[in-house]
Amino acid sequence: MKQGDLVVRKSYGGDVLFRVAILDRETAILKGTDYRLLADAPIPDLTVVRDPEFTGAARQVRIKVSESMRRMQEQRDKQVMQNENEIRMVLSQSQPYFEVPGKVLHLDGDVNYLKKSMQLYTQMRVPAHGIHVHESQMPDMVHRLLPQVKPDIIVITGHDGVLKIRESNDLKSLSSYKNSLNFVNSVRIAREYEKSRDGLIIIAGACQSHYEALLQSGANFASSPGRVLIHALDPVYVAIKASYTSIRETINLADVIHGTISGIDGVGGIETLGKYRVGLPKPKALTGVKPTI
């Protein structure tokens, strides 16, 4: 076994696929390949996976990801058709229009998840600015970047989890979580920057994060109501949904939660207006214009 190997944990029935991040004599630090999970495990508890395509856990996740992507694309196609029909009804003819989806600032504590997230934003044509930053540095980074980037939506995510060894068994205490306090402090700073929940949409949290504290500190959407593992792309899915929901409509809560891979135990939120705008007419290349002055 070596750093970078794909492994599963025997004691957990091989439920999650990991990549070995750090390896010492007796213990390995693991990062989930699909879930935002950072864990440690005794080396004898690990089994190296040669072909992840044939692991049950990975296969089920891929099915869910494909379904979410299919649903997302169907919604975009429906939106384009609706826009064209509305314009045709008003102008009695087809007219090229342009789209202005909401801009995303994405802060991620994991560089590999950030890469996957940025690929999905690009695929769905969402303007996004991504930064890899350790969770402990996120509050300062939020304070610095919000005035520079001026996003419509901010995603604050990375690694989190309920601590095995903690001062209290009280899951209401932020001290029982690996990074929830860092996320909460980041959300508070973002909400101080823009107090309106419709002015700036905040999506925060990771695996098993303190859902209630994140909402109370000002997040629009957060993980994890059921303290479950969330998929690496769940925050991205919510951000894309917010980016492409019209400013005339609220983001459909049931629809966005159902569309995530983790479901209602993984992500929740409050009613929020979308950030998508349509412009008319579509700008043209201004060639051959004769001066009048």
Rank of each mutant, 00 (worst) to 15 (best):
V7R: 01
G13H: 07
D15S: 12
F18H: 06
R19C: 04
D24Q: 13
E26F: 14
T27N: 13
A28S: 11
K31A: 09
D34H: 10
Y35C: 05
L38G: 00
A41P: 06
P42D: 13
P42M: 12
T47Y: 04
V49N: 04
D51G: 04
P52S: 15
I63W: 07
K64L: 09
K64E: 02
S66C: 09
S68L: 02
M72S: 12
R76I: 13
P96G: 04
P96Y: 06
Y97S: 11
F98V: 08
P101K: 05
P101I: 11
V104H: 01
L105C: 13
D108G: 05
G109D: 08
S117Y: 01
M118Y: 03
Q119R: 10
Y121I: 05
T122D: 12
M124H: 00
A128R: 04
I131Y: 14
P139A: 00
V142P: 03
L146R: 07
V149E: 06
I154P: 00
T157Q: 02
T157Y: 00
G158A: 11
D160H: 05
L163G: 08
K164G: 15
D170Y: 07
S173I: 06
S175W: 03
Y177P: 06
S180N: 02
L181A: 11
N182S: 12
F183H: 00
F183A: 10
R191N: 03
E192K: 11
E194L: 08
E194Y: 04
S196Q: 11
I201D: 01
C207D: 05
S209E: 11
S209L: 03
H210V: 11
H210I: 12
A219W: 01
N220V: 12
H231T: 02
V236M: 09
Y237F: 14
V238Q: 02
K241Q: 13
K241Y: 12
A242L: 11
T245D: 01
V267D: 07
G269I: 05
I270A: 06
E271N: 15
E271L: 15
T272E: 00
G274I: 00
P281M: 04
K284W: 04
A285W: 10
L286N: 15
G288W: 12
V289Q: 14
P291V: 11
